[in-house]
Simulated scan of single mutants.
Amino acid sequence: MNTLPNFHKLYLDARRNRWMNYFTVFCRLALAAGFIPPGIVKINHERFTDLHNNQPMGHYLEALYHTGYYHTFIGYLQVTAGLLLLIPRTAIMGALLYFPIILNICILSLSVRFEGSLVTSPLMVIANLYLLVWYYDRLQFVFPFKTEPIPIQKNKPKQLDNKFPIKFFGGAFATVVLVVFTVTHMFEIMPRNTISDCEKQCKDSENPRACQAFCDSIHNSGMPLHKALDQYNEVESKPR
C-alpha cells in the first residue's frame, strides 16, 4: 500500500541529489552522442557501415538504405531526439522520442546478433528508461495511480545534497556488468562482421564442421540467419 508514497520520497530525494543530477546530464549527453552522428549520416543519405550484404545486419542496412526518404526520415528523428535531449527544457520530449527508436534498434541487434550494437543498445535502452523515470513528475498524470501527485520539479533545487548515492551507483555498475555478461554469452554462435572473424569461433567450437558451414552459409552464400542456424543445429547434431 505504501509503494507509491515510498517511491515519491525516493524520487524527490534523487532530484535533490547533486550526483544524481550529474548522472542525468551524463545520460542525456551520452544518448545524444549515440544518435546525432549516425542520424547525420542518414540525413546525408550515406552508408555508415562497410558490412557486406550477405551479413545479417548488412542485409537490413542495405534494404534500409534503398528505402530513400524513409532512411533520411529516420536520420531526422535521431538528430531531433538527440538535440532535444541536449536542451534541459526539451529533454523530456527527447527521451520520449528516443525510446521507441532505441528499443527498435536493440531488438534488431539481438535478432540478427549484431555485435556492433549488441552491448550498447540494451544499455542505451536502460539509460533512456532512467531518464523517463527522472521525468516522472511530468509523466505521472498518464498513469492510473490514485495517489497524491508529485509537484512538478520546474527548476533544479538551489540546495543540492552532496551525499554520494553508493547504493544507486553500485546497482548501476552491477546492471552494466550483468547486461554485458548476458548479451556476450547468450548466443552459442555469432555471424560476426566478416567470415574470418566468424571462423575464429570454430577453434573453440564443439563441432568445428558445423561452425565452418554456418560461417560459409552466412558470408559466402548469403543465407538468412535463421536458416543458417537451422543448418548449424542439424550439422551439429549429426555424429562426427
Rank of each mutant, 00 (worst) to 15 (best):
F48D: 09
F48K: 04
T49N: 15
T49R: 00
D50S: 12
H52G: 06
H52W: 09
N54M: 06
N54S: 09
P56H: 04
H59C: 03
E62T: 11
E62G: 00
E62S: 09
E62W: 03
E62K: 00
A63S: 04
A63M: 12
H66E: 13
H66Y: 14
T67Q: 11
T67H: 06
G68I: 11
G68K: 09
Y69C: 11
Y70A: 13
F73A: 10
F73Y: 10
I74P: 01
I74N: 07
I74Y: 07
Y76E: 07
Y76A: 15
Q78T: 04
Q78P: 00
Q78L: 13
V79M: 05
T80W: 04
A81N: 03
A81Y: 01
G82K: 01
G82E: 00
G82S: 05
L84C: 05
L86Q: 07
L86H: 08
P88H: 02
R89T: 09
T90F: 14
T90D: 07
I92F: 08
I92T: 14
M93H: 11
G94C: 02
A95Y: 00
L96E: 03
L96P: 02
L97Q: 00
F99S: 11
I101C: 05
I102H: 07
L103H: 11
N104P: 07
N104W: 11
I105C: 01
I105E: 01
I107P: 04
I107Q: 12
L108G: 08
L108Y: 11
L110P: 04
L110H: 15
S111N: 12
V112F: 00
R113Y: 13
R113G: 10
R113M: 15
V119K: 07
V119H: 08
V119C: 05
M124A: 15
I126W: 02
N128S: 15
L129S: 12
L129Q: 14
L131F: 05
L132K: 08
V133N: 09
V133S: 11
W134S: 06
Y136G: 11
D137E: 06
L139I: 10
Q140T: 05
Q140V: 08
F141P: 10
P144I: 04
P144R: 00
E148Q: 15
I150V: 10
P151N: 12
Q153G: 10
K156Y: 13
K156N: 13
K156A: 12
P157K: 14
P157H: 09
P157S: 09
K158P: 06
L160V: 09
D161L: 05
D161P: 08
N162Q: 10
